[in-house]
Amino acid sequence: MTDLGLPDTILACLFDLDGVVTRTAVVHAAAWKETFDAFLRERDGADFRPFDDGDYGRYVDGRPRADGVRTFLASRGIELPEGAPGDPPHAPTVHGLGNRKNELLLEKIRTGGVEAYDGTLRYIERVRARGLRTAIVSSSANCRDVLRSIGAEDLFDVRIDGVVAAERGLPGKPRPDTFLAAARELGVEPARAAVFEDALSGMDAGRAGRFGYVVGVDRAGRREELYAHGADIVVTDLAELGVPGTEA
C-alpha cells in the first residue's frame, strides 16, 4: 500500500484527535498551563515553578483528564484528594482541577474555534477510498462535538472517546485499551491496524497493543522521542505518507 505509506497487511486506521486531526493540542496545552500555573502559584508562592511544554509532553498529553492531573502532580510530589467527577472547577481535588482545565478549554474553543489539519483530512479520504476502515480514538470527552464542528464525523466508522471509555471502564493511554476497543469494533486484529498519534503516551499505547504500524505525527519537535516511544515512522503531516522521498 505504498500510495498510503502503510504495509500491505493494514486493514484499518486508528486516528487520535488532538494534534493529528485537529489543531487543538496547542489549545489543550494552553488550558493545562493556565490551570496548573494558577494552582501552583497559589500553593508554592515564591517557590512557584511554572508548568511547561516538557511537562505537557511527558505527563499530560494524550492521557484522560484526571490521569493527566494525577501524573503531573505526582511529578512535583503533590497529592490531592480525588474528589468526584462533578466537582466544581474551584475544588482543590483531582477532578476539580481537571474540570477547571476543561472549562478553560471549552472557552478557548468557543472564542477561537477549531481548525482541522487539511493534510490529515485528505489522507483519511484516501484511506477510505482504498477500502480501509477508520476510527477516531481520543481521551477527550468533547471529541464528538469537535468532529461535528469541522464536518468530519462521517469520516470515521467507529468513535472511542472519553465518554465511551468512561462508560466501558477503559483505561486511557498509555494503556492500549481504547485503541484495542476500536480495532475490535472495526473487526480487525491489532496486527492489521495502524495507529496515528502525536502524543508520547499514544506511541506507548500503540507499542503495548502490538499494532501493525504506528505513525508518529511530530507537531512539536519531538521526533526522536516519538521514535523512542515506539513509532515505526515519524512525519510532520500525514500528507507526507506515500509521497516519494519521505523517510521512515
Rank of each mutant, 00 (worst) to 15 (best):
G5L: 01
P7G: 09
P7V: 15
T9C: 04
A12R: 02
C13Y: 04
V20T: 04
T22Q: 02
T22R: 01
V26K: 07
H28Q: 09
A29N: 03
A29C: 07
A30G: 14
A31I: 06
W32E: 02
E34R: 10
E34Y: 01
E34I: 12
T35M: 14
D37L: 01
F39Y: 07
L40E: 01
L40S: 00
E42Y: 00
R43M: 05
D44I: 03
R49C: 05
P50W: 04
P50Q: 05
D52S: 00
D53K: 15
D53L: 12
G57V: 02
Y59F: 10
Y59Q: 08
P64A: 11
R65G: 02
R65V: 03
V69T: 08
F72S: 05
F72A: 05
L73F: 11
A74I: 03
R76D: 03
G77Q: 06
P81H: 03
G83V: 02
A84I: 13
P85L: 05
G86K: 04
P89G: 11
P92W: 01
T93G: 09
H95F: 14
G98F: 01
N99C: 11
R100V: 04
K101W: 15
N102R: 10
L106N: 15
K108H: 13
G113K: 08
V114H: 01
E115L: 10
A116E: 12
A116N: 12
L121V: 10
R122S: 03
Y123V: 00
E125N: 08
R126F: 00
R126I: 00
R128V: 00
R128N: 01
R130T: 05
G131W: 06
I136V: 13
S139F: 04
A141K: 07
N142K: 08
R144H: 06
D145C: 04
V146S: 04
I150P: 12
I150F: 11
I150L: 12
A152T: 09
A152S: 12
E153G: 10
E153L: 12
L155I: 08
D157Q: 09
I160Y: 14
I160P: 08
D161E: 09
V163E: 02
A165F: 13
A165Q: 11
A166S: 13
E167H: 14
R168D: 07
R168T: 09
R168Y: 08
G169R: 00
G169I: 02
G169Q: 00
L170E: 13
R175N: 13
P176S: 14
A181W: 07
A182N: 10
A182L: 03
A183M: 08
R184N: 06
E185M: 11
G187D: 07
E189I: 13
E189K: 12
E189N: 10
P190M: 15
A193H: 08
E197D: 10
D198P: 06
S201V: 02
D204V: 06
D204I: 04
A205F: 03
F211C: 07
Y213G: 09
V214T: 14
D218N: 15
R219L: 10
A220C: 09
R222V: 08
R223T: 14
R223I: 09
E225K: 15
L226N: 04
A228F: 05
H229K: 07
A231C: 10
A231G: 06
V235I: 08
L238G: 03
P244D: 07
